[in-house]
Simulated assay, not measured.
Amino acid sequence: MGFEVDVYERTPGELDGRGGGIVLQPEVLRWFKERSELTPGQISTHSRVMRVIGDGNSVEFEEEVEWRFTSWGTLYRALLSDFGRENYHLGHTFVGLDQSSDSVSVRFANGRSADADLAIFADGITSVGRKRLLPDHQLDYVGYIGWRGTVPETQLSSETRAVLGDSLTYSFADQTHICMYPIPGPGDAVEVGGRLLNYVWYRNIPGTTELDEIMTDTFGFRGEVSVHPGKVQERYVEEMKDAASTLAPAATELVRSTAQPYIQPIMDFRPPRMVFGRAVTIGDSAFVARPHAAAGTAKAAAEAWALADALLAAKGDIDGALRAWEPRQLEVGNALLDRIKIMGRAAQIDNTWTPHDRRLRFGLLEGALQPAY
């Protein structure tokens, strides 16, 4: 028994040119081990150690641990290749839905509609599905932003490449920290020399007035969840690069070498539920979790695996499957948000983050073992 699945994408063209880094947790790697024609090694880079660096690039902490990293675009292209394009429909922006006891009808801005037994909203942080299903609930800004960027590793000094090229690397300063790791480069290159060095640098902006100003792009539009590369006001880019001197030298060079850094305000969101009759939300359309645990993609994958298992076990009883599926997803999502609040406060407010504290490590579940590749 299987499922007939159609994917409706709101953008008019395939999503390309998105190079932000993603940590490949076991929940995502499972697809490439069990179902895909591609292997993890074809779509990802890897680290040898976790490293914390300080003044003069001194190594303050180092532990052998392997992680795999990919980019948003590389993962998208891999999954689309596996799914195929026959049932992948571009240019369909969701605008509304109607439900009965055993079906759902979804309407799109282009005038078309689709009928199904179940509608799954997996449309990200800006989910229009969430806004339709939970109109009175808003994302919570947590008081800091993430500056993001990528730099071809060949544009960096040999010292910086040596420090950052084989590791998941952190640098800390007063109420701020940066996380860095290698990801696939142009053409999805994963070999040394063709990769990008990716980072997220968290900086506190507690006031909403200053946030509104920095989130207004060069065309005067206020971004809801990002200001895209090339559209950040130059004065903020210059200030950010000047402030990078507070970080370890390798991190400073990486930040200052970024041609077009971009901004994401860091948000939290806890949904009261994920099942709405014959419509459900998963991934960032449901819980929105700060990136500290690198668990957003893993959470979406885990929810999708669990939903498939529940539907198969229910043997046609979709409502029963959803009742069985939802409680565990709410439990995991709430636990993740509780833990990332601790992580964010330790790194951005209290300066108490320590690499020895397993609660502060990557992973969807607290205390999860490092993935086996």
Rank of each mutant, 00 (worst) to 15 (best):
G363E: 01
E224Q: 09
Q155C: 12
F32C: 09
T160N: 01
A314E: 01
H46T: 15
T160G: 01
V225P: 00
V5K: 06
T150K: 00
G20W: 04
F69R: 06
E224Y: 05
G283T: 10
D16C: 12
W353I: 11
L322T: 05
R35G: 08
E86T: 15
P12H: 05
E303M: 12
V7N: 03
R85A: 10
V23Q: 12
F269A: 07
Y88I: 03
Q329A: 07
T281D: 00
Q264S: 10
I120Q: 00
L247C: 10
I43R: 05
S101E: 13
L365I: 15
L336M: 10
E4N: 14
Y144T: 14
L322W: 04
T281L: 12
E62I: 13
S36R: 02
V65M: 07
F108C: 04
N334W: 03
S171K: 05
L97Q: 09
R18K: 14
L15N: 14
H356W: 05
V275K: 02
T354D: 08
T209V: 12
S157I: 06
V104A: 02
K315W: 08
Y8K: 07
G316T: 06
E9V: 14
A294C: 06
A122V: 11
I349N: 04
S127G: 04
G73L: 01
